[in-house]
Each structure stands twice: as C-alpha cells, then as structure tokens.
Design a protein around this nucleic acid. Structure first.
Lengths: 343, 343
DNA sequence: TATTTTATTGGGAACGTTCCCAATCATTGA
DNA sequence: TCAATGATTGGGAACGTTCCCAATAAAATA
C-alpha cells in the first residue's frame, strides 16, 4: 500500500539539478543560490516531501534517540517521570523510545536489545523486580552508550544513578506511625531483589529499634508487586494471632489495596489499622493515603540531565544523585485530617 | 564517546569471508555452510554484535514502526490504551513510538511530522482539544500510510475510527441522575472542538428532554480540560442563584476535582450534589465516583488491530467501530454504596 | 588579456544492511 | 571425459541521505 515516498532525488530530477544541491538547500547549508533554494523549498512543500531521518541518522552514526525502560504504567509514577524526560528530550531534539518490561526480566532483556538495534544514543532504566543479571545493560557500557539508572538501580554497575533517600523515607514513615501511638507496625516489603526494598526495610527496622520496639519477623512480609499477591498477604496479616495496628507498605498501589481490604472487613482506618504508602501517586491524595512522596519531576529531570551530560560531553562519571522524600500525612494515619473522598 | 560499533563488515574481515555470507548466516538465510554459520554466530556473540535495525529498515523501505499520539498522561486513560497497543505491536514485532501533544495543536503537528520523518508504517491518534485543522494527518493519507483515530477523532477524514457510544453513555448517566431524584442537573461540557463533547452534550440534553426536564443553559458550561479552569467553573456553578443538585462532568479528572471542591465547601455528596464522571479511571473506583466506563482495553486492541489490518492488507477501509460504555454506580450518586476511601 | 577569487554546482563515496547475480568448486550422471 | 547439478561463496547495487572534492562559470583583480 505504501506508495513511493518523495525523496531528495525526485526533487532534483524535477528541478533538473543535482541531489547535492537539493540537500544543501533543504538543510540550510551555505553556498546555495537563493533562487534555487526557494525553488527547492517550494517543491518540497508541494510534494509533501519529508526528510528521512533514518537515512540521516545512518550516515551521521548517531540516532538522536534515547530509550527508557520502565516496569509498568499501572500507577502514575512512571508515566509522570516519562512526561518529564519526554519534555527534556524534545527540547534537545531527541526522540524518546518508551519501553515497558512488565516486571519481567526476559522482556527487559528484549527491550534492551531492541533499543541497541535501534542505535539509541543513551538509555534510562528502572529495572524490573525480576532482574538479577545485568549483562544486557553492561553491553551498553561496553559500547560506550551512556546509561542512567533511576529509582530501581543496578548496584554493580558504575554509572550515574538517581535515587531518593529510601531509607530516610521509610524511617520517617515508621517514626510517624510510632508517634501516633501504634504498637505493632507491619511492613509489606518489596522483593528482595530490589535495593529500594532493602533500604526501605532497613529504614523501617531502624526506626523501630531506635524507639525500643522489637522487630517482629511475623510482621514483615516480602512480596512481589502483583496485585493478587498483595491481597493474599494483607489478608494473612489481618488474621495472625497478634495482628498489626499499622501497615507500612512498599508502595502506594499496595497501600491502597490494603485500605480496601481492611475497610471491607469492617475495620476502621486509622483507628484500628493505620496505613502508609510510598511514592504519592495521583490516586493517593484522593483517597487520603499518608505516604512518602517522591519528587517525580525532579527524578525525571535529573536522570535525563545526567544522561544528556554524558551524551554531550563524552566523559563517564558515576555520579549518584540522592533526592529528598517528603512524608505527607493524610487521613489514613490521622483521623481529623481532611479527606476528599465521597463519604 | 560512542566507540566504533561492530558491523557485519568487521565480522567478515575477522573471519576472512564476505559480508554477504555473514549477512546470510545472521539472518538465517538458506545456503550457508553450517560450519561457517557457527563461526559467524560465535563471533557475533563474542563481539557484542547487534544488527543495525535502522539500516535494515532503510533498505527494506519500511520501518516496522508505528506511532501513537495522545493528548497526555494525566489520567490512567491513555496510558492504559498504550499498554494494550504496545502489547499488540510487540507481538507483531513492531516498535511503538509514543508521543504526547499536551493538548497543544502545534505540538501535535510537530509530533506528526517527526513520526513521518521516522518513516512510521502506521499511526494511531487521539487528537488534542485544540485541533481544528487536520492537514498534518492528511499527509499520512496522501502518502498511503494507514491512520486510525480513537476516542477523539477527526470527522472529516475517511479512515478507520474507534469510538465509544458517547451519546448513549451521557444519556444513561443523566437518566441515572434523574432516577435518583435530582432536579437541576448541570453539565460540565468539554471543548466544542471535540466531537465527543458534542455527543455527550447531546446525550445529556436528550435525556433531560425525554423526561420533560427543561434544558437550562445556565447549567451547561463548556470548558477546556485544564485543571485550573475546571475549578473556576465548578465554583461558579455552586454560586449561581439556583444551583444544581447534580453535575455530570465530561471526564473523571474534572469530576474528581468537582468532588473535592464540593466537599471543601461543606456540602454533602450525593445528598446535596451528586457527581458523575466519564471514563472510569483507576482513581475513580477508589474515591467512589459514579462514572461511564469506557472499555480501554478493547479500545486499544481494536484500534491497533484496525491499523495492522491496513498495514498488512494494503487496502483502505473507513470502518467505524463503536464500543459500548457501561454506567458504574458508586457512592458519588447513591449513598448506601460502599466506597473504599479512608473515612 | 590573463589570472585569481568567489559563488554555485555536480559527482560520488559513505553509513550498515539486503539481495540479486554471477563465480567457484565439488559432485553426480551419462 | 564432459556436461550438468548442487552447494557455497563473493561482488556490487541499492535504500536516502550527507559531505568532501572537484568542476564550472562569473566576477574581480592585476
């Protein structure tokens, strides 16, 4: 179906000039007669000529394209970051290739290979929860294609990373639960494979220890991030002999799920059980979830900036930027606070 | 910084064979000695060889790439559709280029041109609220590059479109408000430029007329889709001399905003004012918003399918698929219904 | 008038592939 | 022994650009 696309050659033939001249006229290069240029430009418009960026990239040996691999679009977190990156890429005249790993290692590897094949000039990554092997990213490093990790990072690679202070965030969330008088604080932890899980777990445990609370292993559940599993674990937590009076969840979606389950069992939030999440997704404000806010815009900008710094400067530097989190207290931990849900 | 990428030529030189043979070995073509193939494959792996898809696309005259232009990522609606499209594209071995117009006509035009330059084999579009001129899409048609509109469509182009029954959805939403006894039902309408706005407005008006309710022009406010504006209009509606007892909003984000404003003024939902939205975003279930659900998965799949039908079959057909909506009644219109927000 | 300078142009290689066509060689059959 | 067949290979054009280098013509200088 795709008919013949107009090329520089067609314009050259039609005007009876060489393709070199047409190329010069179109790219705004010097040394082309004004009259000729005008004729070329007119012809280009009237024939719907559109330059083949692919061909240009091939000859220039760079693609003006960067890739980003994120786990999913199931909350507002990654889409928000992508919006920021997209904006910076656009302003640098780069194309952004967006890929989802769907939390699958295999898909992530396939995505990485695909991006390599498409000759990306740089890569942003937040790894899947399954990823333990990083060979597919090390290839980029070997080929000198800059790579920047954000949020879910690869510890063993010496490349720039953008993180938030997960330990500190988890610590203050737990401390908050202690301050409002909770005695048995559970933690729905993330998969052990992710360093953010470990850091948040440590923040949680250290806050408990500091206040002379014992760490009860029964109250810590490591779970993968699929919704079905979360349901099972929350239900389990509510049914143990000495159930928790608060739950600090690894992220907002699981915290929101927890709230739904807890309320459906007739328990009161926050009186019976208080809930805290992590990230401050769009939905969290609406349902009144107390959560550790991550500076999404800043994460996106910083990661993109670090990437372009490397692309443009040709030097490697394994900077680690750690951004601040911010505990936002809402009605899932403090009753009196306003909550915008339909009562 | 970007070093020399390994090419087919390098492998050929290293093994002292021709690049034709290497190409054949790598593409799995017939007529290559098993031993030679093995050597080539080994060398490819040990040198991190990655085939340049760009070059292949150039020579094959197609890009195995499709583009999608959506207004934004500010609700779950478009991301959800993209996830579906992404999945189908992947399974067809196509790359998906995701662009956002940010509700800006100019950006949309730039996006379309960029996708043309990147030689997309097809395009999916949901137009921005500013778009009144469609020349940038007609170019695709002239170049015989298939295009499919979804949700926010271009009426004047004879190409496939995927729609939901907006009229019917709005009608049943309004009817629902009438049934629960509301007398002054307002409508926060979308921008006149979008046909979905008109259809939803008509559905709203016809439902009122059918039940012998007069249409009060004071209760219909046309607004663009920016959050600030929505705030102003809702505030206005609540302050007119004879204020509404229900509001049917053009979409979920504005309905959610309406709820926030109404509650912050001390009014009760749904007793004082009932609110209905449109789309059933992720957040809507959480806050108990009654809404007209759109089948996002189906929209994404259908649109992608229609696009690939055209790409693969080479024939044009201006099918219009109209999918069913589904009114989901929650606590923003019926009090007794469960709502999962933190009380 | 002869020579240099300047403006404008065309030719052709290159980017990394694919793929057609011929070339080579060994093997088979008559 | 010779032609025919088959397997395997290499050469080279092509995709649509960019860009270097040379060619041409006109204008300026000597």
């Amino acid at each position: 179906m795709k008919g013949h696309q107009v090329t520089i050659k067609d314009i050259a033939r039609a005007l009876n000039i060489s393709k070199s001249t047409v190329s010069r006229a179109l790219t705004g290069h010097a040394n082309v007669n004004e009259e000729t240029r005008k004729k070329v430009l007119e012809m280009a418009i009237s024939t719907d000529y559109q330059k083949n960026i692919i061909a240009t990239n091939l000859i220039k040996g760079r693609s003006k394209t960067i890739g980003i691999i994120v786990p999913d679009f199931s909350s507002s977190f990654f889409p928000s970051i992508i919006v920021e990156v997209q904006q910076i890429a656009k302003q640098k005249d780069y194309l952004l290739l967006i890929m989802q790993s769907n939390e699958s290692y295999e898909t992530e590897v396939a995505n990485a290979k695909l991006l390599l094949g498409h000759q990306v000039d740089g890569l942003l990554v937040s790894i899947s929860q399954e990823t333990l092997n990083f060979d597919h990213f090390k290839i980029f490093d070997r080929k000198n294609i800059p790579i920047v990790f954000f949020n879910r990072v690869c510890d063993e690679m010496m490349v720039p990373k953008v993180l938030v202070d997960d330990y500190e965030g988890a610590f203050s969330a737990t401390e908050h639960l202690i301050k409002i008088g909770k005695k048995r604080i559970a933690h729905l932890a993330g998969p052990r494979s992710l360093s953010i899980s470990k850091k948040r777990l440590n923040g949680y445990m250290d806050a408990l220890k500091q206040d002379n609370y014992g760490v009860d292993e029964d109250l810590i559940i490591e779970c993968d991030l699929s919704p079905d599993k979360v349901k099972i674990y929350i239900n389990h937590l509510l049914k143990i002999k000495n159930p928790p009076d608060a739950i600090f969840c690894i992220n907002d979606p699981s915290a929101i799920q927890a709230i739904q389950i807890i309320e459906s069992m007739g328990l009161k939030i926050p009186e019976d059980i208080a809930v805290v999440g992590f990230s401050n997704d769009f939905a969290s404000e609406l349902i009144g979830l107390t959560t550790v806010a991550q500076p999404v815009k800043d994460i996106g900008c910083t990661a993109a900036q670090l990437l372009f710094d490397q692309i443009e400067s040709d030097k490697k530097k394994a900077i680690i930027k750690q951004l601040k989190t911010n505990l936002i207290i809402r009605s899932s931990t403090v009753k009196s606070l306003n909550c915008n849900r339909v009562k």
